[in-house]
Design a protein around this nucleic acid. Structure first.
Lengths: 237, 237
DNA sequence: TTGCAAAACTTGTATATACAAATTATAATC
DNA sequence: GATTATAATTTGTATATACAAGTTTTGCAA
């Protein structure tokens, strides 16, 4: 993180999070900020546009950058964030159970989902997430073996994303997600405390590296009463 | 829409949608585009960054702007889009039933949700959406009467957003959304063809104007088998 | 004091330049 | 022909300027 505008963005996020700017306040003007951080106005504008995109501020022409209410929802489950990062952020009582970590040749459906040839082998990882003593999330990951060559139970126990980014040096960049509701399966009953529920919320994600190669498909199955998704959306004209 | 970079953005979106650029192709370089559109490189970069944010392209340094696959999911239900705009875009057999359009003084819960005083009156609009002959979505809107003074059944039948933006000239800007699963209520059974389902997917939205004033709270209740939410997310470092 | 006009301030758009960093194409060398 | 070094291409970052557009403040005049 050596970029000026990213450093300034993160600084401002921290300030807002810590309450140095309350909701409704206006940030210092772009001119003032450029002096405070001893940089140009355009660089400040890059940082502020990031804040705006992520729902921290609303820029109003002629007025300033108004800080938005951060506590309307407690935690952002949207975006592209690993379970490990989320639990670190929230600091609740989380636990991960690793069921399976093995390599297989992909069948037709999986090959089309990861659009790769029959020669490519696929990692299959199955984990359930325990929150406050209940297993409420079942994560099934499918990862291209030619891109992520080595996976172990211990990596799956800790954080696969941490391994991919920090050990392998790969650049996880974006994801396309789909959220639907589906019937509970035998596998759900086996690894989740589904109790009386007959349905689960399923989040299917296609995850890409920075060079636009698709390397992972994930199916995240949530018990409906413990599922929450929050989102910030700007209207496109 | 007079801004150069927005016009260029929309042009490029249309080209990608029409298949003039296929997924995997690289767009012309920023230098070439700036000549084609006879503008500066920075303006082209603004347009390309919008394309990148909305999942149309992936920019790779040294390489170019790679066009992403648009058909992985058919339609974008995320973002901030009215039902009317969605149905126009998809062109399916949609119908809207308007149940209620009236003004009331807000109770405590509604006042806190729209954070306004007891003097402010609130529009309550209730509509169900029929798709292929089935009523599968129940939309309950709560709109501040001091901001949107006149609402009629005919406006609610057509498009409230169209009225707010084009008739009143207000600037709808952003929304915070929450998606959860809840039990079916009596009201759901009355206005929806819930059939055997015991739960609905609830999308609660807080919608803001460009000057950061909260003017609308919406509860959109979907029959789970007809619910789908798609999202494009970029990883923030 | 009130009202209005002008000035000052703040964000938005467009353009330009310089250099950095990554990839690709080219040329040279073995 | 294969490998390597160089050059050209392409995107990323940082900075600067000029003007437009909307808001707030100031100050003057009635």
């Amino acid at each position: 993180m050596k970029n000026k505008y990213l450093i300034i963005y993160n600084d401002l996020v921290q300030m807002i999070r810590k309450g140095e700017f309350m909701s409704g306040d206006t940030l210092p003007s772009e001119h003032d900020l450029s002096q405070q951080f001893s940089t140009s106005r355009e660089t400040i504008r890059k940082s502020l546009n990031l804040l705006s995109q992520n729902g921290y501020i609303q820029k109003v022409r002629g007025k300033g950058s108004v800080v938005l209410d951060q506590n309307k929802f407690e935690f952002p489950v949207s975006g592209l964030t690993s379970f490990k990062e989320l639990s670190d952020q929230l600091g609740q009582d989380f636990k991960t159970h690793v069921h399976e970590v093995f390599v297989e040749t992909a069948d037709n459906r999986l090959r089309s989902r990861l659009n790769c040839h029959s020669s490519v082998k696929i990692w299959k990882v199955s984990r359930s997430r325990e929150i406050n003593g209940e297993r409420v999330i079942l994560d099934k990951d499918y990862i291209r073996e030619d891109i992520v060559p080595n996976l172990t139970k211990s990596v799956a126990q800790h954080s696969i994303y941490d391994y991919i980014e920090n050990e392998l040096g790969l650049d996880i960049s974006f994801a396309k997600k789909e959220i639907v509701v589906e019937q509970v399966t035998e596998e759900d009953r086996k690894y989740l405390d589904v109790e009386e529920h007959s349905q689960v919320v399923v989040i299917r994600s296609y995850v890409y590296l920075a060079d636009a190669t698709l390397f992972q498909f994930t199916e995240s199955r949530h018990r409906p009463d413990k599922f929450q998704f929050v989102d910030f959306a700007r209207r496109t004209k």
